[in-house]
Design a protein around this nucleic acid. Structure first.
Lengths: 208, 208
DNA sequence: TCGTGGCTTTACCAATTGGTCAAAAAGTTA
DNA sequence: TAACTTTTTGACCAATTGGTAAAGCCACGA
């Protein structure tokens, strides 16, 4: 019984749980919670449906596990923003990290987006407990930078929202972007554009 | 039989179809296509399930009808952008219109976002046929403005993406924003922030 | 080689879901 | 009011879905 919250998990347990979670990430991010079926996860993971239910208590358990794991990864780039670093550099580096993450983990980005769009039924507690405190803390840091004149005056909250939305857009709306960018093959430019966007916004008006 | 594509629809048909579509917008935008059920639409609209199927060929028909109606509304703010107007004013007005729309039609915004995130299975044709040409046309206009030195040099495509993402974020991620902004009651500021963001980006370096 | 315990499968539910159909109930019109 | 059309409903399906139970498999230590 892998349910008990003790004992070291065997190699097989480790492998199969990870197989299931990876398959579930595919399926949940592509169809949403209610749209995903255990049969799809079963097929994608190569494990039979009852076998999946041997490793997880149910569909919701898989989803929640995925969401829990995601939260850490998701907050990481913001955690790394250093209050003692150079303000503009720190923020631009944060933008770059978020953009890299959207490119490397598009499934996770879509899973998160889908959950929030649908009212975050299974993630509200996480938002309150994990995201909110970090958000408040980092907004305070940014506000300090603004007050010290090291950044142009901006509302830190809307700044963070704009960083989230612009970067995640490249993962969440990838299909749309694919259609619209199809014209010319090579067209990254997102990095340079966002760097330009946010440095112009944040650079203080008079000499640094 | 309201299926036939002729005859003037009766008052009852008009009323009931609109009841159904409004209820379906609630349900689809909150749960996604596969997550929504005819029973939910039935309850939300006050019409029995077989009655709903009397007015629409099936679940997919309702969804497609919704998506078709949405496309028009969605493109409208961009259509209104006037190539002969003042570049900066036109773009800032476009931002404002998109932001207003996100606030007034959050359900539509979420329906659209959900559809795109899930790979736009029912909307790819619309993106190709309607969005792409308009996008290319307006990007060309913006490029002209840039070439004439009326705007700072930016990639028009990424500019448009950033406008879409920042404005729609306020509708699609409303729950998250609700959690994070809960601290102080009155905190709009999105309008001013986005205006600042995009005017700093777009104002040419040397005198206009 | 024989247990023993962890792992896997086959067979099976009960509930939900999208959808059908024929008959009843409203309108409409003559 | 009678005849006809449109709208609405109750009863019913077949397929899908999340989940269960019990038996079988398989590795590994004694």
């Amino acid at each position: 019984m892998p349910d008990g919250a003790e004992k070291k998990p065997s190699r097989i347990q480790l492998r199969n749980r990870s197989l299931i979670l990876d398959a579930a990430l595919d399926v949940f991010s592509a169809h949403g919670y209610r749209g995903a079926t255990l049969d799809q996860i079963s097929e994608a993971s190569g494990l039979s449906k009852p076998n999946i239910l041997y490793y997880f208590a149910g569909k919701e358990d898989i989803h929640v596990t995925l969401l829990n794991q995601l939260m850490e990864t998701w907050l990481d780039p913001l955690v790394e923003m250093d209050a003692s670093g150079d303000p503009l550099e720190e923020l631009l580096a944060y933008v770059q990290r978020k953009l890299d993450m959207a490119r490397e983990l598009p499934r996770e980005s879509r899973l998160f987006a889908g959950e929030i769009i649908q009212g975050a039924p299974r993630m509200l507690p996480h938002l309150e407990a994990d995201l909110k405190p970090l958000f408040d803390e980092k907004c305070a840091v940014i506000q300090t930078w603004v007050d010290e004149g090291k950044l142009a005056p901006v509302d830190p909250r809307h700044l963070v929202f704009s960083i989230w939305s612009t970067t995640q857009h490249y993962a969440d709306f990838a299909v749309q972007i694919g259609v619209l960018m199809r014209t010319d093959v090579a067209a990254p430019g997102a990095d340079a554009f966002l760097r330009d966007l946010f440095s112009k916004l944040l650079t203080p008006a008079k000499g640094q």
